[in-house]
């Protein structure tokens, strides 16, 4: 059993499982699946600085979501340590390996390119842009758009929201720009 679930899960197992989180949260407590709100709750809890956007009861409205986030860290720990795949390599498409090799990625082990995304990589300009810059745009963009992948691409589209469709198209425009313009330039 442990061996069976330690293998990488195919999309048709993982996707539906993620999809069921949406009705589960709605039926359990009328909650909307959306994780980037936690970044707002964390700001409201630590450095609200009298900004109106952070003036609300984060504990009352957001503690459930922060608990979910803490759970995600535990799930990440379990998945990457206790249930780590026997085969540590990610079987990427050969085209992706070639394309990334062409722009300067050589280490394909693990979940992140350790040449850039590591404490050592942080001292390099590409690493700093990817980790700190990437993080900044994720936080800024998620709040500007009013949601991230879970809030728009999954919850929003599940409720057939046109704004979410526009946001998801935006995600891809931004992502394609970085993939084909920014990464080849900085790496």
């Amino acid at each position: 059993m442990i061996e069976f679930i330690s293998q990488p899960w195919p999309w048709y197992v993982a996707g539906p499982l993620i999809g069921f989180i949406v009705p589960a949260l709605l039926i359990f407590g009328g909650k909307q699946f959306g994780l980037s709100s936690n970044l707002r709750h964390m700001c409201a809890a630590t450095i609200p600085a009298r900004l109106d956007f952070f003036r609300y009861d984060w504990r009352r409205t957001g503690l459930w979501n922060l608990m979910m986030l803490a759970g995600i860290m535990v799930g990440g720990f379990i998945g990457m340590n206790l249930l780590a795949s026997p085969d540590p390599d990610i079987h990427l498409s050969a085209k992706t390996v070639t394309a990334l090799g062409d722009i300067g990625v050589s280490d394909f082990s693990g979940f992140v390119p350790t040449e850039f995304v590591s404490w050592k990589g942080l001292a390099t300009l590409p690493g700093l842009i990817m980790v700190l810059g990437g993080g900044f745009f994720v936080g800024f963009g998620a709040r500007y758009a009013g949601g991230c992948t879970s809030g728009h691409a999954i919850s929003g589209l599940a409720n057939l929201q046109v704004p979410s469709l526009v946001a998801v198209l935006g995600f891809f425009v931004g992502g394609l720009f970085v993939t084909f313009v920014v990464l080849p330039f900085i790496l």
Binding site: V112, A145, S150, L169, G175
Partner: peptide, 19 residues
């Protein structure tokens, strides 16, 4: 939605992870 989405997509592709 489109501007925020584009910013988010830029971050998503740079760091390779959403929240």
């Amino acid at each position: 939605y489109w501007l925020g989405g584009i910013f988010f997509g830029i971050g998503w592709a740079l760091v390779g992870a959403c929240p």
